[in-house]
Simulated assay, not measured.
Amino acid sequence: MIRVVIAEDQQMLRGAFASLLKFEDDIEVLAEVADGEQAWEAIQQHKPDVCVVDIEMPHMSGLALAMQIRDAGLPCKIVIVTTFARPGYLQKAMNAHVNAYLLKDEPIDYLIESIRRVMSGERVISTDLAAVLFMNNENPLSEREAEMLRLTKEGMTTSEISKALFLTIGTVRNYLSSAIQKLDAESRQQAAAIAEEKGWL
């Protein structure tokens, strides 16, 4: 029996996953949760074989949860399901050693088969994402530049960023200027939007 925890913040989709998986004779759904922190608690409590997890959830993202599972040395297999075919997300998922990375518009049979495949030691990536993985689309931003763009996306001004990070306004402007140039953007807001779309923030 393959023991599964489902972590998905959309209630209808979470319920659909659970209902369909329960029809399978070799799969048991142990818990259904709505955010990353609840998923972490459920994984510690139930010790599942597989966690089916959304990439964007409240409190802790699917990627952060995957890293936490790996850092803790837990044997739980990780199946990421997402609407996002972003190269940055996919690369982060690979770096976190997730076992499967699937798009939500795949047929449910593909999810079920993927759960069985990861249990047999395979790594599964949706066909539409395989090409993305091999695209040379590496993140050109330094950690500091990405941090500046994240704060920009949250609506902070240059002055507010400098106070928050204990940097001079000139230093903040230099980082933002560098990020804008690297992303061939016209403004810091556009640079932040580009970086988010690529999954680099």
Rank of each mutant, 00 (worst) to 15 (best):
L183H: 07
L111N: 07
P75F: 05
K22L: 00
F134Y: 11
K47A: 08
N137E: 07
E8Q: 06
E122D: 15
A192P: 04
K104N: 13
I108T: 09
L21M: 06
N174K: 13
Q38T: 05
T157A: 12
L20C: 02
I27V: 09
S120N: 13
E186S: 11
L141T: 12
M67Q: 10
I6N: 01
D49P: 02
G155I: 08
V79F: 14
M148S: 11
N174W: 13
F17P: 06
L167T: 09
T158V: 01
G15N: 04
P75M: 13
Y101R: 05
K104T: 03
E41W: 04
A7D: 05
S126D: 12
G121N: 10
W200V: 00
D109C: 08
G170D: 04
A72W: 02
P48K: 08
E41L: 09
A191K: 08
D71H: 11
A16T: 07
H97P: 01
V52H: 07
M119D: 07
F134E: 15
R86S: 01
N137T: 05
M67I: 09
M1Y: 04
G199Y: 09
A100K: 04
L21Y: 01
N137G: 03
Y175E: 06
Q44Y: 02
R70N: 15
K47V: 03
F84G: 05
A96H: 11
L176P: 01
N174V: 14
D71C: 13
A96S: 10
I161Y: 03
G15Y: 08
V52R: 10
M1F: 09
R14H: 01
E145F: 07
G36I: 08
R144A: 15
E196D: 10
D184S: 11
E145V: 15
N95V: 15
R123C: 13
D26Y: 06
L20G: 00
A146M: 04
D26W: 04
Q44P: 06
E8L: 03
G199I: 03
E32R: 12
F23V: 00
E56I: 15
E145T: 08
E41F: 01
E154N: 09
D9W: 00
S159D: 06
A193P: 01
F134T: 10
L111S: 06
V52M: 15
I194M: 11
M67K: 06
E41H: 06
T152A: 13
P107A: 10
P140R: 08
L141Y: 12
V50T: 05
L201P: 06
A185T: 03
H46C: 08
S142L: 13
V124Q: 05
I55F: 11
V50N: 09
I6A: 03
T171P: 01
I6S: 01
A130D: 10
W40R: 11
M94D: 02
E28Y: 03
V29Q: 02
A164R: 04
M135Y: 10
L176Y: 03
E37I: 15
R14L: 00
N137I: 00
I27D: 00
M12C: 02
Q91F: 12
Y101I: 08
E113V: 14
N139Q: 08
L129F: 12
L129I: 07
A185S: 14
L167H: 09
L65P: 03
F84C: 15
R123G: 13
A130R: 04
